[in-house]
Nucleic acid binder design. Structure first.
Lengths: 151, 151
DNA sequence: CCGACTTGGTTTTGATTCCGAACTCGCTTA
DNA sequence: TAAGCGAGTTCGGAATCAAAACCAAGTCGG
């Protein structure tokens, strides 16, 4: 391996994700989308974001395939922004962020609790090894290069 | 509740987390910290980030309690930045981001795979209901206000 | 039929923030 | 003595941001 290599060059899915999500507003826009916000002005009011910035961010998210721009009224033409499956797949990321904030910043007063729909009890996020059929929140985790890299 | 209320005002742990992590560089800095990067110039080279920006970000992360600035050499004085427990607790967030990038951007060639240290098999991230003793990756999830908010 | 209002933007105009390059400081090594 | 290194600080100029005004297409109230 060349010694000029650095992690920024190396393919990294965190980097790739942040190329789409990595600015001050985008993750908050996605959070709102999860909460059911769909319309331009609702995003704008809710986030208190400047219009041109919101316009640009929504466009980028649509291009990235995370939101879909859909006509919901023909005359006058009105558009709404909805989560695509790719966007909906962000839920573990947002949940992880929320739980981290709950635990380390808002400590004893989590503003929102996620519950198992079937039983109504609070739920947790964890790592699972389907092979060992084991669940753990601690980090008994190692990493190795994927199939794109030979080791 | 006042109708001027919006989600930005409302206490939100995602918002709180992003107040610490929410700019173009911070999450990448944390990723590097997880990979074992500790020194100023290593971060700088690895991320190709401007020095003043890195200085400011590291300071903020130390103030936030996510990194610890530790003297590792007395003469000349040299400091390194290490994850605190609060910082280490970000691993589920970073894993979620990585897996999302794996699945939706890098599709068939995940650059890095996480494995269960005990058995070496790939591991997954999921939601768990300890009450029902059930694990699921799909979203059978509802949310309700936490104890800080009356509904 | 006229004017006010709504949604979903675009344009324009300063104020921040960012980046690159050069400089500093304390110390080590040749 | 000079050169080099780690860890920053100090400058401009460039990109980005926010606030406010403007626009367009339609709707509603009187």
């Amino acid at each position: 391996m060349a010694d000029t290599e650095n992690n920024a060059d190396r393919a990294c899915s965190i980097q790739a994700s942040l190329d789409i999500l990595g600015d001050r507003w985008t993750i908050l826009i996605m959070r709102d989308a999860f909460r059911g916000v769909r319309r331009f002005d609702d995003f704008r009011r809710d986030l208190d974001i400047a219009r041109p910035v919101l316009t640009e961010r929504l466009k980028r998210l649509v291009v990235a395939g995370v939101l879909e721009r859909r006509l919901y009224c023909e005359r006058p033409p009105r558009y709404e922004y909805r989560l695509t499956p790719m966007g909906a797949a962000l839920s573990p990321t947002l949940v992880a962020l929320m739980r981290w904030g709950d635990e380390w910043i808002n400590h004893d007063e989590p503003p929102t609790v996620l519950v198992h729909e079937a039983c109504g009890e609070p739920l947790d996020q964890a790592f699972v090894c389907w092979h060992c059929d084991e669940t753990f929140t601690q980090s008994a985790i190692a990493s190795r290069p994927g199939n794109a890299v030979t080791h």
